[in-house]
Amino acid sequence: MKRKISLFLVISLIIMILGGCNNTPATPTTQAGGETTQAPKIDYPTKAITIICNYGAGGGTDLATRALAQAMERILGQPITVENKAGGSGTLGIIETMNRANDGYTIGVLTAAPLTIVPHQMEVPFTPEDFDYIGTFGQYGYGIAVKADSPYQSIADIVALAKASSGPLAYSASGYPQPFAMNAIGEKEGIEFTYAPYASASEVLTAVLGGHIQVAVGGQAEITQFMKSGELRLLAAAGESRWETAPEVPTLLELGYDVALRSYMGLGLPSGVDPQIAAILQDAFSKAVEDEQFLQVMRNMNFMISYTTGEEYKEFLARTYVENKELMAE
């Protein structure tokens, strides 16, 4: 009997640990020196901090977030746990962040697409105005790619292919904003494309590798992986600048198409957090994005590192929110 009881105890203990019990006993930080304080200086952080990631565990955003959390942990001296709240095209994690206490102990991963695009597709209870932003740490890059052994060498070839085919040419992508790139090309050239939506970034490229689809608008991380192995050819970068991993390939802007897809991974807080706490977090964040181990993980994952401040990010989101509303209404 004893053994069984101990089995249950062990298992329930494991569950507790795995179940996201984040109340790791906080050791009070003893600050040496400067005891004679003037204004009531805030003592933060005194316990564990939670970061809510709006995508699933093990994915690209999650791994980048965890690397960042480890770096911030070293700077703030308190444990940081990452909680995954995936679903609703990335909106569930954002709603969760909004509903948590604004005591500074809950930080949310606030990515651009669920904040500025998804609200125009379905009813969500938030706008970009509902958060205080800490800043961005990564950028999702996009590009247009074809199979390496296909005859298409440039966007002009794709345009010619689309003009020659009997119906609209299909391309694969995994959700907005990717289709905006093809829409811009189609508009200028007077051709039509069909958006074939795949569930994940890797399926988008698998469809092209298998020859089922000719063109893909994919993520930089995934396309780079297949460019290294010689399976895919990048025809154009879809962002503002060329890719570091493929500096010889032009951007759509350079080719004369008026489109630059931008999407970020950022951190933010439920609005109304004490400004002193927000300042401490912003300071720790700006140091963490220069942490060597974090940078290494980002580079290895083929992610673009992009540091902007909370102010800049907020401004970007507000602007894109309005722009996308018009684009999605078309």
């Binding site: 093990g58 994915g59 690209g60 791994l63 890797s202 991380a221 992986q225 297949f226 290294k228 192995s229 010689g230 399976e231 290494q296 993980v297 290895n300 994952m301 083929n302």
Partner: peptide, 14 residues
Amino acid sequence: IGAFLIQGLTPGPL
């Protein structure tokens, strides 16, 4: 795949 990438390795023929 994420685990490979973290190590700086690209899964695939390479």
